[in-house]
Amino acid sequence: NRHQFAPGTFSGVLQCLVCDKTLLGKESLQCSNCNANVHKGCKDAAPACT
């Protein structure tokens, strides 16, 4: 399954699913299917969408 990433819209601090570093809103993407949160630069390394 493929992620459907869109710019993240969340408040607070989240961790990137891929690199475990802190996500800030402006550099984040969120999958509309599984709600995975990743950095824009990490999206290609994200595991399959669940």
Rank of each mutant, 00 (worst) to 15 (best):
N1C: 05
K43Y: 09
H39Q: 02
S28D: 15
T9G: 05
A45K: 09
H39M: 01
V38F: 14
Q30R: 07
H39E: 03
Q30M: 06
E27T: 02
D44Y: 07
N37L: 10
V18F: 05
G25R: 04
A48K: 12
D44A: 08
C34M: 00
N37V: 07
Q30D: 09
S28Y: 05
H3V: 02
T22C: 07
S32V: 09
L14F: 14
A45W: 09
P7C: 04
L23G: 13
H39R: 01
P47V: 13
C34A: 00
Q30V: 07
P47F: 11
E27F: 03
S11G: 13
L23S: 10
A46V: 14
L14Q: 07
E27C: 02
C42W: 00
A48S: 10
T22K: 07
S28H: 12
T50I: 11
C19L: 00
N33T: 09
G8V: 05
Q30C: 10
S32P: 14
L14V: 14
A45D: 14
T9W: 03
C34S: 01
F10S: 14
S11H: 13
L29R: 04
C42G: 02
G8Q: 07
N33L: 12
C34W: 00
G25Q: 12
C19S: 00
Q4N: 15
Q30W: 07
L24M: 07
N33G: 12
L29N: 14
G25E: 14
G8K: 06
K43C: 12
L29Q: 04
N37K: 06
L23I: 06
V38P: 01
T22P: 13
N35R: 10
V13Y: 11
F10C: 11
G12I: 03
L14C: 11
T9S: 08
K26P: 12
Q4R: 13
K43G: 11
G12S: 05
C16N: 00
V38L: 10
D20T: 12
T9V: 07
H39V: 01
H39P: 00
N33V: 10
C34K: 01
E27Y: 02
L29S: 09
N1G: 08
G25A: 13
A45V: 12
S28T: 07
L24S: 14
D44W: 05
K43F: 13
K21E: 10
H3F: 01
C16L: 00
A45P: 06
N33C: 05
L23V: 12
E27P: 00
Q15P: 06
P7F: 04
N33H: 09
C34T: 01
V18R: 08
T50M: 05
D20A: 06
K21W: 03
L29W: 02
Q4V: 04
V18G: 11
D44F: 06
A36H: 11
F10Y: 12
G12D: 14
A46K: 08
T22Q: 15
N35V: 05
N33K: 10
R2C: 08
C16I: 00
L14S: 11
S11E: 15
Q4D: 07
A36R: 14
